[in-house]
Design a protein around this nucleic acid. Structure first.
Lengths: 303, 303
DNA sequence: CTGAAAGCGCTTACAG
DNA sequence: CTGAAAGCGCTTACAG
């Protein structure tokens, strides 16, 4: 009998309806991941490490792409919540999202990834770039630079503010000038890096080195420099927060700060699981690393 | 009364349970997208264009990442089917997947993206690189090259075979030598490009130009060349099927073929919708474009 | 150990 | 037009 039933299952191609199942059962064995921009390799890699970690724990993950748009982000959170995900991993696009705030309060356990979000009652897991940025400033100073510029992130993004603050403080500490007119805000997207670089190069007194606050904007800065046939480290040095795989392939290679992406993704899943189990979990930070190459005048040093 | 109910909805933060709804209703307003490798910018962009197109049609999309692993791919197809997606967009990792075959037959409408899959009864939408590859071979010939090598894709992937066939045929047509010992198979991932490039460079008689069958393997080839301090176009030229945003930033810039990714994503959604409506849809191909830069000896021409 | 019933949270068709 | 009932496909607690 049992055999005949199984044969029929095979024969008819019966597939259990997971939707009906999760209506009756408590959990869905599914978590949601809302990233701010899938075209950014950082988040593509994050998505991958989250998926890998989740798979090992027999959890499914649904990925949503907010495209740095808070409206899109809220839309995805809404959809995922309606689909009864057990928990949510979100890279918040901006600090203020009423939905995120609400959701964190009652719907589902949430872990914030990469960026903090004020007023949202959820633990954060992110890279801590402060030390690496301080290392970078010390490095630039030791190369003999005096005046630098920055392509900063959006004011409302936690990461953006944090990297700017760290750069300002450590620049001041080592005696490097980071004047207000040399700080231009971007949106974390490639195009804004191009525009910002154009602005900096057009300044009456351009900075000696430009520091881009994320990889996408760094790419934009590089593209704008090439377009103008402006090279580095002369007349302008370049360094980037985020290390793209091709930075070392350029000539000269780009000095950059890398984040422990894979580790952050794994940690995020782990933290979410602990919250699902009812534990309280605190914020987690992981250090970044400075990769010194040749885009800031390293080889010209001491000439 | 109505007002009071709505107030309570607001107050309690009521959110309709989409799972319960879709149990009763016919559709889920959700489609699945299974890509073969999210770390490949081609598929990241594909995912984005699919999401954009779906959003406009009020469809949700769940993204799954197979990581070029047929097991993973089947697992995702299974999950998505169990979750009652209305239809599936899949970039098949290999030609033979019983699940894909079965699913196409009875479960849900499927559209194959980027790669054909033999024995699967589903329409394909993909770029047609044949003309662009022919253009490339003509170009290489006109540059005076005689003997080229290729980093091909996996034998089982439709795209891999197709690009190799196109290269072989058009090379023969223009009188370019593409000997068997200069064809090495990769897996479409970066590491396999490195290994393949190493193999080709170590040949007693290395090819004058290497053609990589996708962007990831092209990246690997470039990395291996840099590691060995081997430059291009001398001693070896380089060209790639897929155009990564930073190919033009290298010095010399990489000659490459670009695919109309965004258009393919939009078309895929559109085709799936038509299948959902019960229409028959045929295969769709869109042409690629050759971008001539300087990695194959363009500037040395005629010296 | 086996089998029938109740219920998850919705929508829809039907009766009042 | 309003309100109660049936049913989507499962799982689980309960009766036989």
């Amino acid at each position: 009998m049992r055999v005949r039933v199984l044969a029929a299952v095979q024969d008819l191609g019966y597939r259990p309806n997971a939707i009906a199942r999760s209506l009756r059962k408590t959990g869905t064995k599914t978590i949601g991941l809302v990233v701010s921009d899938l075209m950014n390799p950082f988040f593509a890699e994050l998505a991958r490490s989250v998926e890998d970690a989740a798979r090992k724990l027999d959890l499914n993950v649904i990925v949503g792409n907010a495209d740095e748009d808070p409206g899109q982000q809220d839309r995805y959170i809404q959809i995922l919540l309606e689909r009864q995900v057990d928990g949510l991993l979100v890279v918040p696009t901006e600090e203020t999202s009423t939905l995120l705030h609400e959701a964190a309060q009652r719907d589902a356990p949430i872990i914030l990834v990469d960026r903090p979000a004020r007023d949202v009652n959820a633990p954060v897991v992110r890279a801590d770039g402060d030390q690496a940025i301080a290392d970078l400033m010390t490095h630039l100073k030791s190369l003999g630079h005096e005046r630098i510029g920055m392509i900063a992130g959006p004011e409302l993004a936690g990461t953006g503010r944090q990297r700017l603050t760290a750069a300002r403080e450590s620049a001041a500490r080592v005696g490097l000038d980071l004047p207000t007119e040399c700080i231009v805000r971007g949106t974390f997207r490639v195009e804004s890096g191009e525009a910002a670089m154009a602005h900096l190069l057009d300044l009456p007194a351009p900075p000696q080195v430009v520091f881009a606050a994320n990889g996408q904007m760094g790419q934009g800065a590089i593209m704008e420099a090439r377009r103008r046939r402006v090279s580095w480290p002369e007349p302008v040095g370049l360094c980037v927060f985020d290390d793209l795989p091709w930075f070392e392939l350029l000539e000269p290679g780009i000095t950059a700060i890398s984040q422990p992406v894979a580790e952050i993704g794994e940690l995020a899943v782990e933290m979410l699981l602990r919250r699902l189990a009812g534990d309280e979990v605190g914020d987690q930070y992981r250090p970044c690393r400075l990769h010194i190459r040749a885009s800031c005048g390293e080889e010209l040093n001491g000439r």
